[in-house]
Amino acid sequence: MKLLSRTAVALTSAVLFSSASQFALADWVLDGQRSTVQFMSVKNASVAELHHFRSITGGISDTGAAQVALDLDSVETLVPIRNQRMRELLFETVRFPAAMLRAEVPESLSALPIGETRDTAIEVEVDLHGAKQSYIAEVLVTRLSDGGLQVVISEPLVVKAADFGLDGGIEILREVAGLQSISTAVPVSGQLVFLPEPD
Rank of each mutant, 00 (worst) to 15 (best):
residue 107 E to V: 07
residue 178 G to S: 12
residue 22 Q to P: 09
residue 92 E to L: 14
residue 157 L to R: 04
residue 18 S to Y: 03
residue 37 V to D: 06
residue 22 Q to H: 07
residue 169 G to S: 02
residue 9 V to F: 00
residue 167 D to F: 07
residue 90 L to P: 10
residue 129 H to E: 04
residue 78 L to M: 02
residue 163 D to K: 01
residue 53 F to L: 08
residue 199 D to A: 12
residue 28 W to P: 15
residue 48 A to G: 12
residue 118 R to Q: 09
residue 89 L to G: 15
residue 144 L to I: 03
residue 24 A to P: 10
residue 62 D to G: 07
residue 63 T to V: 15
residue 175 E to D: 13
residue 88 E to S: 15
residue 4 L to V: 00
residue 20 A to S: 11
residue 175 E to H: 01
residue 18 S to D: 14
residue 194 F to R: 05
residue 1 M to W: 01
residue 109 L to I: 15
residue 50 L to F: 00
residue 32 G to M: 01
residue 149 L to W: 07
residue 77 T to K: 00
residue 117 T to Q: 01
residue 82 R to F: 02
residue 44 N to D: 04
residue 80 P to A: 03
residue 137 A to R: 08
residue 133 Q to W: 14
residue 121 A to D: 14
residue 152 V to A: 12
residue 171 E to P: 05
residue 108 S to I: 05
residue 170 I to E: 12
residue 118 R to L: 11
residue 63 T to H: 12
residue 38 Q to W: 02
residue 120 T to W: 09
residue 185 A to Q: 05
residue 54 R to C: 10
residue 18 S to I: 09
residue 58 G to I: 06
residue 14 A to H: 08
residue 86 M to K: 08
residue 104 E to H: 03
residue 30 L to V: 01
residue 29 V to I: 10
residue 199 D to H: 13
residue 37 V to S: 08
residue 100 M to F: 01
residue 179 L to A: 08
residue 79 V to C: 03
residue 57 T to H: 12
residue 140 L to I: 01
residue 38 Q to G: 02
residue 54 R to P: 13
residue 92 E to H: 14
residue 116 E to N: 07
residue 92 E to P: 09
residue 135 Y to F: 12
residue 66 A to R: 13
residue 188 V to E: 00
residue 105 V to T: 01
residue 61 S to W: 08
